[in-house]
Write a protein that binds this DNA or RNA. Structure first.
Lengths: 349, 349
DNA sequence: TTGTAGGCGTTATCAA
DNA sequence: TTGATAACGCCTACAA
């Protein structure tokens, strides 16, 4: 039968007694119309029969497009990223692209993990990058940009706004949370802030402060967690509680659900109950938040949509569709109310 | 300077006044020693200077190896898969491989999503497949196998054991749960089973039944959920409760944490408290299980390890390292005790 | 130790 | 509408 395990265009051509470039044309939707209808039929039949599979590497080499993009994220194990990735892949899939994924946060040499990943991706000739690594130290990102790579950021912007990005309106998210609590009657509201090295940590803290200002309230009670984790949230909440006699807060807005969860534990330990003593609002609305006790109110972010839109933006840019080039898309978050917020107690214990 | 945006071996060779095959050799760790030390230095310097990046498509075409494997899973959004994927990628990374990912469960044409994905991957000339789609209807898998593709299954085996796989010992997992409950004094134990169409659903149910048999206990109270979801768990638990006057169970083992969570809700609704009225054990030990109320005991599965080992197995097979060829690796689960189990009440209400 | 020649499978550009 | 030819960038003989 066929000499190689998987037949090539040449094999097909030989089999049919036509030239391989004719077969090549028949395989390409864009140029198929140049082939006689009857021949086209025969070619397609033969392709099916012999089990022809296009060789992507050859095509990539020949036309210089790999139909592949690099995706950089810290750790797919972090629950915010799966929906983002799913969105990315669904969008890529529609256009016949594949994602090459790299988890850049590694236990060992976390420093240049991103660098190394980028280089491997460049060897694969990815056509662009989707960067969701959310950290604000972007030395490698800068050099990547300067090398002329196409980049779309996800869930954060670069300092100077040079790069297109798809982000959530973090300021608005915090405003929604604060507005809700103020609407319930809270005046002393604390903030469990995320690390300032992360753009979300910073933006949400600023959003909190601004929202409080808009209501004419002070934003004194702020504790910064040094990571988005339950443990850090618990520690930060302890810090907040130690000053509570001064600040007298009756509600807490956390920069992240994990922090809120940690905060919940610290509150319980301190003998305070949620929401009757202290109301709590999280951020991200990650899965299973409705299963904790009490079910946690949270600011929901459109993770899937972020990924999807970012991938579309990148692909459009690769096609040089004008107008989508330098865009930054800002998605609206939404407050999801559950059982962790209520009217404030008359006076804090 | 260089004529193309990214220089090729040829460009480097010209720049240095040597032949491109010499440069090629210098770039390959395996053949670097064939190049004069001093020349090697110059080549490396020039490569850095001109910003040379190997073109993967070209080398893939030339040597017929894409350094790429396909990963099929239902949905990265399902919390069991991120650690598996992370394990896969860490293992692939070590060997310079990339994963091409496909989420095969799609809202629309879920039937042949896997087929389509496989074909796209074959066009990319993936060297093998890691299949974690856990469903037991494997028509496409069969044909894939027969086409001679290298495959390693994750978290399930095929019916006839034709394919190497990395799985968790589901029977043992259930035994751990049952042993624990029996040790506490429970005799009437119910099972919240998963869908029988999934290998894990079936295996865990069988494991449950066998474990009960070993203790001389009957396994009558079993309700099958039709999906691994909180809602299905709640429904199945309602079914169990409706017969409770007959079965009088004092403990429940769930095939999955989500089912257990749904079960928890149904129990609460029925006015039963966990663990004082009914003990509950989940399965998978997914994240945040320690945050629910009460913190759920669960059978922990080595997800990351499953992914890592499976990827290694595949790579080894690709290298035809003997002995690793047809292996099936069975990993041991572990019971993680939290607050959802205790001694049975003297007589069920 | 280095150079030469040919090919991997596809696409692009002409020419017929 | 089809065929011929030459890339694409790298690798692998083999020759020097």
């Amino acid at each position: 039968m066929s000499r190689s395990p998987v037949p090539t265009l040449q094999d097909l051509a030989l089999h049919l007694g036509v030239h391989k470039s004719t077969v090549s044309r028949a395989m390409d939707a864009e140029r198929r119309h140049l082939v006689a209808a009857e021949l086209l039929q025969r070619i397609e039949a033969a392709a099916r029969e012999l089990g022809y599979r296009p060789n992507h590497a050859a095509s990539a080499l020949s036309r210089g497009r790999s139909k592949t993009v690099g995706v950089l994220l810290p750790d797919i194990t972090n629950p915010v990223f799966p929906p983002i990735l799913r969105g990315i892949e669904d969008a890529l899939d529609e256009e016949g692209y594949f994602a090459l994924l790299a988890n850049t946060s590694r236990p060992d040499n976390s420093v240049d993990a991103a660098q190394v990943a980028v280089e491997r991706m460049q060897a694969q000739r990815v056509e662009g990058f989707l960067v969701a690594t959310a950290t604000r130290d972007d030395a490698w990102l800068d050099s990547l940009r300067q090398s002329g790579a196409r980049i779309v950021l996800i869930n954060r912007t670069d300092g100077r706004g040079h790069l297109p990005a798809v982000i959530s309106d973090d300021m608005l998210g915090m405003r929604l949370a604060v507005d809700h609590l103020v609407g319930l009657g809270h005046k002393k509201i604390a903030h469990l802030a995320g690390p300032e090295t992360l753009s979300t940590g910073l933006a949400r803290r600023l959003g909190f402060e601004q929202a409080m200002r808009e209501h004419g309230l002070g934003a004194k009670a702020i504790a910064c967690a040094d990571a988005y984790s339950v443990e850090s949230g618990e520690i930060a909440m302890h810090a907040l509680l130690s000053k509570r006699s001064k600040t007298q807060f009756t509600a807490v807005v956390a920069a992240n659900d994990l922090l809120a969860l940690g905060g919940l534990q610290a509150l319980k330990l301190a003998g305070l109950s949620v929401p009757s003593d202290v109301s709590v609002v999280g951020h991200n609305d990650m899965q299973l938040l409705d299963q904790v006790n009490p079910p946690l109110s949270s600011v929901r972010i459109q993770h899937y949509e972020m990924g999807f839109r970012a991938a579309r933006l990148l692909i459009d840019a690769l096609r040089e569709r004008p107008g989508s080039q330098e865009a930054t898309v800002v998605l609206r978050p939404q407050l999801v109310l559950r059982a962790s917020t209520t009217v404030p107690i008359s006076s804090p214990t």
